[in-house]
Design a protein around this nucleic acid. Structure first.
Lengths: 135, 135
DNA sequence: TATTGTTATACTCTATAACTATA
DNA sequence: TATAGTTATAGAGTATAACAATA
């Protein structure tokens, strides 16, 4: 053989490393941290309660409060009391927030770039393997 | 079809998300941050200059200084001047550091667990696809 | 009394700028 | 003068504990 094969473990590590770095760069390009971009992304499907967001982002509720405060200060999200249970605050994305979110999406070209190196059958193969890894 | 297929983009996102969370958990289980664990990992092949580490970890040199200071305070790394160029400080892992590193490795069972769901041919397939994604 | 979210606090990550020591 | 690393500082991420409002 002409070169030492990198182990699959190492390949996964390298891929995740590059993926994370690319996402971070795309977020920073619009002045957001990766955590802020993730929170914004979690709101694109509709408003969410703070507690739901903490669960989804795998972090403490107090952390969501602070991330939301920074995004709110930039006008990217809005915080409104839930009409049914007034303890609950629902966070939603503003039009400006959607704009920024779209820019991050567009700047995060890593997945499209890399997957573009595969043929259609290879992408189907990868998707099936991923299904097993995620199941 | 019986269920909506998740897009390959989304599958990659989910996989990376789970991978990162698992690594973070393995590090935290021994009282390290993910960043500290990565620094420790970068030293397992031998001592490294601070500057090299900054390049490898994609961060500023001042950051390495502080990460190293915390690990040094716990006795996991040692900092020694390079005998040739005394401006250079070489960081190396201590026996205690190796011990902790091994514990993190063992606790980070995510890759082995997930890859264990694949057959040998499937793992070879995945490795070949990864080669193309990383090339 | 239990739950949702916030506030206060503390520690870590990270970068920039100024500095020290060495080359 | 240029380079390696550190220090000082500041903003952000994160968690814990104490708290307020509501249920």
């Amino acid at each position: 053989m002409t070169e030492a094969a990198e182990s699959l473990d190492q390949q996964l590590w390298d891929f995740v490393y590059a993926y994370d770095a690319a996402y971070d760069a795309a977020a920073r390009a619009v002045g957001l941290s990766a955590a802020q971009a993730c929170l914004l992304d979690a709101l694109t499907g509709g408003s969410r309660a703070m507690g739901e967001l903490a669960t989804e982002l795998l972090c403490d509720a107090s952390n969501v409060t602070q991330l939301a405060a920074r995004l709110e200060a930039r006008g990217l999200v809005a915080r409104d009391p839930d009409p049914v249970d007034r303890r609950v605050k629902r966070l939603s994305i503003t039009p400006a927030g959607r704009q920024v979110h779209q820019t991050v999406r567009a700047g995060f070209d890593f997945p499209a770039d890399r997957l573009g190196r595969l043929s259609d059958p290879e992408r189907r193969q990868l998707s099936q393997l991923m299904s097993k890894l995620l199941a």
